[in-house]
Amino acid sequence: MRHATTLRIGPATFRIGSAWPQPIADLSRLYAAYPAMTGAIADFTVRLQPTSLMRRFVRPSIFITGDHGLADAAPMSLSHGLLAAEMGMNLQMALGWRRHLLLHASSVEKDGRALVMTGESGSGKSTLAALLSERGWRLMGDEFALLDLETGAILPFPRLVSLKNRAIDVVAGQVGDARMGPLLRATAKGDIRHMVPRADAVARMDQGAMPALLLFPRFGHDDDVRLVGQGEIFMRLTQASTNYVALGEPAFAGLTRFVTGVPARAIDFPSGEAAIAMVERLWEELA
């Protein structure tokens, strides 16, 4: 394709091609500190192509696809090209990654041990991971946590952190504009702005950590901490995984080991500050 770049995030390498220059320029700027991968064999190809011949030029509209794609994927405006590229990479991981159990979760690390946070979109797991990573934790990822089925470790996948709506100002105020991407207004999920992880997150993106605490965060409720039964945890994690079925019996064994070995709590919180205090306290008590 006319415009292209190759990126490596954790264990996965992506060759991203685009019919337009802007998405590639955005990626190159925001991923500048990541390893240079020119001339690498990529695990996945991502394509940002016009939805039709005309839509290359007139009201440009992006169809996100690649090695793995969804025929009915919603077209996106070129002004959201950076988001389209990120979604294209997520799509490849969600549909094609087989080397680890993929959990839809954020994760951060401290003292060589990992905190994993899983929940639906809007639960606050990305925001919480971003805020913790500015307070002495190492960001491992805001979207996917990779569970190594042989060692039981969580491996990082530290792509750009995707912040939505109210979380944007909260985080941008703390990290400064230099590490923030362009504000993407009125996407399908509201306003979105990407945050570049701190240098240590990128430098150590090949270092996994053993999981020490699992949280199910929920933003927008009064402070609360609840126990969650292991059966429920197991079911919620299978639902939070896109490749649990594809990996077969090793995934069952690996997930069982994770669920029986890692303490877990569901937490509700009204604000980011409250959440951080709660997480630090639970980490002291349980991890």
Partner: peptide
């Protein structure tokens, strides 16, 4: 094959 050749080969094989 060089890396570009491999990338083309793998993408075509998947498609």
């Amino acid at each position: 094959l060089d890396a570009a050749g491999w990338n083309g080969l793998l993408a075509a094989a998947r498609a």
